[in-house]
Simulated assay, not measured.
Amino acid sequence: MSVKDNFSEQSELYAAYRPHYPAMLFNYLFDNVKSFDCAWDCGTGNGQVAYQLARRFKKVYATDISTKQLDNAIKAPNIHYMQAPAEKTSIPSSSVDLVTVAQALHWFEVKSFYNEVKRVVKPGGILAYWGYNLLQVAKSIDPLIKNFHDNIVGSYWDPERKILLKEYADINFPLKDPHQTYFHYTVQWSLKHLKGYLESWSAVQHYIRQEHSNPVEPLIDQLQSHWRDNQVVTFPVFLILGRVG
């Protein structure tokens, strides 16, 4: 099985500039979990979710296919980082209370991944997966960013991007009592931070490699007159959660 790794080359950008997730999201997860012995954060990237889980769980397995991502991941004594695809890990069977996937499910072979989830979870274990939609800033800024996303780098996105943009509606795991909910993550960013975040996009990196120029720089020039100091940026986050059947 071919596995895409779109984030190793910009792993430092990813660690520095990718948005986090709101505390309300993690509180929601914890309210749905019965036991806090062990969690698995799959496609952990820079470990930001694993770190939050490690504050409540005795042990956290955090897996990713990218060693560079794992090298830049947040460390904690109870987080066990492992290089492994989502579909096959060395996590012990029937050991996990909660499986999380943040902004990564669209890269997985979902049937094989769910088989692995069923293998590693305890009876009644929870699977939660989520992602964020395009950032929202201001009426004068949002159309420029959407045009950049859809048109400037639109053809450079991998096909899997469409799965995310549809909020994983086409992925139907046989979960018990599945439900979807929404959160918002709000931060204050400089224009430099926005630039770093956009440059972490896989489509931007594809564009740079193919066209030998950085498409983010003209956009940043456009935004100079619109961007305020410590501009408020909001990420709409969607989450699906259910018990593993």
Score class of each variant (00 low, 15 high):
Asp41Trp: 03
Cys42Lys: 05
Tyr132Gly: 01
Met24Ile: 05
Tyr28Phe: 13
Gln224Met: 01
Ser213Lys: 15
Ala23Asp: 13
Tyr207Phe: 15
Ala86Leu: 00
Gly45His: 09
Leu29Arg: 07
Arg56Trp: 10
Phe173Ser: 04
Leu53Cys: 05
Phe108Gly: 02
Val60Met: 08
Ser93Phe: 07
Ser213Val: 09
His106Gln: 13
Pro174Ala: 07
Arg119Gly: 01
Glu160Gln: 04
Gln103His: 11
Val101Arg: 06
Ile91Val: 14
Asp170Tyr: 02
Trp130Gly: 11
Leu191Val: 05
Gly154Ile: 12
Asn172Arg: 13
Trp40Thr: 05
Ala76Asn: 11
Phe183Pro: 04
Met82Tyr: 08
Gln83Lys: 15
Val117Cys: 02
Gly245Ala: 10
Trp201Ile: 00
Leu135Ser: 11
Asp158Tyr: 14
Phe36Val: 04
Trp189Ile: 05
Leu134Trp: 11
Gln188Gly: 07
Arg209Gln: 15
Val153Ile: 15
Asn72Thr: 03
Tyr21Pro: 00
Ala104Gly: 11
Trp130Asn: 01
Asn230Lys: 14
Ala39Asn: 10
Lys139Thr: 09
Ala203Tyr: 12
Cys38Arg: 06
Val120Phe: 10
Lys58Phe: 02
Cys42Glu: 08
Ala169Asp: 11
Leu175Asn: 08
Val96Asn: 07
Tyr197Pro: 00
Val117Arg: 06
Pro174His: 08
Ala203Cys: 06
Asp97Lys: 10
Val110Glu: 12
Ser2Met: 06
Gln210Thr: 12
Lys122Ser: 03
Ile74Val: 13
Ser93Gln: 12
Cys42His: 06
Ile74Asn: 02
Ala104Arg: 05
Ile163Cys: 09
Ser90Phe: 14
Lys88His: 15
Tyr114Gln: 00
Ile171Val: 11
Trp227Ser: 05
Asp177Val: 00
Phe235Leu: 03
Ser225Asn: 08
Lys162Leu: 08
Pro218His: 10
Leu165Trp: 14
Gly154Val: 07
Pro174Asp: 06
Gln10Ser: 12
Gln231Ile: 09
Val244Asn: 07
Asp71Ile: 00
Arg55Asn: 09
His179Leu: 01
Ile126Cys: 00
Trp201Thr: 01
Lys118Thr: 10
Lys75Asp: 12
Ile79Ser: 08
Glu217Gly: 00
Ala62Gln: 05
Leu241Phe: 07
Asn72Trp: 08
Ala169Phe: 03
Leu127Tyr: 14
Ala23Ser: 09
Ser190Glu: 15
Asp37Tyr: 10
Leu70Tyr: 14
Gln136His: 10
Ala62Pro: 07
Asn151Gln: 09
Asp5Glu: 15
Val96Leu: 08
Asp158Val: 08
Trp157Met: 03
His149Glu: 04
Ile79Cys: 09
Phe113Ile: 02
Ala16Phe: 07
Tyr129Ser: 02
Tyr129Glu: 01
Ile220Asn: 01
